[in-house]
Amino acid sequence: MAGTTATSAESRPGTVRTKRSLAWRKFKEGKYLLLLFLPAFLFYAIFEYGPMFGILIAFKDYNVFQGVWASDWVGLKYFKIFIFENPDFTVLLKNTVLIGLYSLIWGFPAPIILALLLNELRSVVFKRFVQTVSYLPHFVSNVVIASMVLLFLSPDNGLLNQIIGYFGVEPIYFMAKSELFRTVYVASGIWQGVGWGTIIYLAALTAVDPSLYEAAEIDGASRWRKMWHISLPGIVPVIVVLLILNIGGLLGTGFEKVYLLYNPMTYSTADIFSTYTYRVGLMQGNFSYATAIGVFNGLVGFFMIVGANYLARKTRETSLW
């Protein structure tokens, strides 16, 4: 027994040296890939993980002059105020969930449908033209998108009101009607993002085995049948992964476009967590309250993405982890 122990102890340094040399060799082989990865690593380390230190502010009565550490510790005070004592919490939660849910229901399938239709086009030139036109709005800033939406929906000379005016319909004040805000937001989001999302699904469709289409054509399957039974099932893993990510961001409805489009007349359906945080938390200097809202939003999103991943793994055996 003693001899075996001694032999293990003697061989251990050599094993460690072997592992180190192997790790160093792998590092040298992949040094250029690691160099390409470095900017992304620095970005997330500085702008994503570094600021997480500020979560402490949610549990303190933060004072700018005292700093984070010297500010008084108040525990869950601001979480209780926001969730249980804030009369606007129910409205904010409803608006945030509905806008995110409508965007998911109508916006998520749109690039899938467009990708399947483009995949069936035989004209390569027309296919590339549609792709280019459809994903151009993705590169336009939200400020410009919001300005275009306001111009198109203007009651005076907006394009949409001019079109319905030809049919004798009175001009509609779209941006002054709270019941129309969610429709405007979701529709503009689909227009802005459908082309960019299509790129992912078109890339996934290239991985589908062409022999499946040939076999289906020999069996007399129509193009609709091939799309439904071959193309769509072939991209299901990608659909599931993106669906999980979208569910995780259900409460993370974008601040910029909502802030640029809403107004006091549409607060009842347009005011969401992020805009409320900016207006009440940051504009009034209540940083602890604003941070507590952000932490609550992040925790809910985390549990939603974990739950969606669990359900996907149990039902489709496809998940993020």
Rank of each mutant, 00 (worst) to 15 (best):
Q66H: 11
V133Y: 05
S103P: 02
Q162D: 13
N95H: 08
N157G: 08
Y62F: 15
L101E: 02
R122C: 06
S178T: 08
S154P: 09
F152E: 14
I99Y: 14
N95T: 13
L136H: 09
S134A: 15
V68I: 15
V144L: 05
G197Y: 14
L92S: 10
W191Q: 03
Y78H: 08
P171K: 03
K177I: 04
L159R: 13
Y166P: 11
T132K: 08
V169Q: 07
R128G: 14
M148E: 00
D88I: 01
G107R: 09
N142C: 11
I55T: 07
K94S: 09
P155L: 01
N161D: 09
Y62N: 13
V68S: 10
Q131W: 12
A187W: 12
F181W: 06
V133C: 12
S154Y: 10
Q162A: 15
P109E: 12
D61P: 08
N86T: 04
T183L: 12
L180I: 02
D72I: 01
D88C: 00
V133A: 14
D72N: 13
Y185A: 03
V130D: 02
G189F: 00
K80W: 14
Y185G: 05
L98E: 02
F167V: 14
L114G: 01
Q131G: 14
I105E: 00
L101G: 00
N86Q: 04
N157P: 02
R182T: 09
V125T: 13
T90D: 12
L98F: 00
L118T: 00
D156G: 07
K77R: 15
E179Q: 12
N86M: 02
K177C: 04
A110V: 04
V124P: 04
V169R: 03
V130A: 06
V186E: 04
T90Y: 10
L56F: 08
L114C: 03
Q131S: 13
F79V: 09
I83M: 08
L160T: 13
L116Y: 03
N142D: 14
A187L: 14
K127Y: 00
F84M: 13
T183K: 06
I164M: 09
G54K: 15
K80E: 14
R122V: 10
F181Y: 08
V64H: 07
V186H: 04
L104S: 07
W73G: 01
T132P: 06
Y78A: 09
F129P: 10
Q192N: 07
F167E: 14
P155T: 03
F84T: 10
G195W: 09
G54P: 07
Y135E: 03
N119Y: 05
F65G: 10
A187V: 15
F152P: 15
P155F: 01
E170A: 14
I163K: 07
V169T: 11
Y135V: 05
M148Q: 03
L101F: 00
A70H: 11
L116A: 10
V186P: 00
F139K: 02
V64F: 06
R128C: 11
E120D: 00
I164W: 04
V124F: 08
D72S: 10
Q162W: 15
N142I: 11
A115M: 13
P155A: 02
Y78Q: 09
L116W: 03
N142T: 12
P87N: 05
K177Y: 01
G75E: 01
V184Q: 13
D72Y: 03
L93G: 07
I113N: 05
G67D: 02
V74P: 02
F167W: 13
S147Q: 05
